[in-house]
């Protein structure tokens, strides 16, 4: 039963920190809450029997990807004036219509989930099984993912390089 309790605890942390991440006016604070949410997700992964995915969640998501955000926040040089602007942008009435539709969608999903049988989960799938599957039937998907990453690399390099040259022109 400890596992079950841990699951609900992690789920609760994840929900709360995500809500906080979305509503913060300070980008750095939002980022920290987002990292907490991701770590909670990693715990859930571990609990449902996917330890390899849990490790990847911590290393890549919470580690590598979030560091990118940190770098960008550093480059943007955000000032306290920005927070005032964020306050002005985040007026309560802006939330009404999107929240209404999100609630509708949630209700629909809940309705559909409630109609199924009471399914349980709890099979351990270790890294070896994942690796065999990944480089067996899914080898083409791996190749495609590598190409996608290459495209992302080239795209980021292209966009960022022009940014740098323009900055250099401004300073000189």
């Amino acid at each position: 039963m400890l596992e079950l309790a841990l699951f609900y605890l992690a789920a609760g942390i994840s929900l709360v920190s995500t809500i906080l991440a979305v509503t913060r006016v300070n980008a750095t604070h939002a980022l920290i809450y987002l990292i907490i949410s991701l770590l909670a997700s990693a715990i859930i992964f571990y609990l449902v029997g996917a330890p390899f995915a849990a490790v990847l969640e911590v290393v890549i998501y919470a580690g590598a990807i979030m560091v990118l955000f940190v770098f960008v926040i550093m480059m943007l040089n955000l000032s306290p004036a920005g927070e005032a602007i964020e306050h002005r942008w985040l007026q309560p009435r802006m939330w009404i219509i999107p929240a209404l539709f999100c609630t509708l969608l949630l209700a629909e999903i809940t309705y559909m989930l409630s109609r199924g049988d009471n399914l349980l989960m709890g099979h351990m799938v270790g890294p070896k099984a994942v690796g065999l599957e990944l480089f067996g039937p899914y080898v083409l998907a791996v190749e495609i993912a590598s190409m996608l990453l290459l495209a992302g690399l080239v795209g980021a390099f292209h966009l960022g390089r022009r940014y740098l040259t323009e900055l250099r022109e401004e300073t000189s």
Binding site: I97, P98, F101, C102, L104, L105, E108, I109, Y111, M112, R115
Partner: peptide
Amino acid sequence: ALVMLMGVVALIAVFAGVITP
């Protein structure tokens, strides 16, 4: 994004009403 959400809500409403037993 909001309009897409509206479309998804409508689609799933139809989907859930027709497909689910």
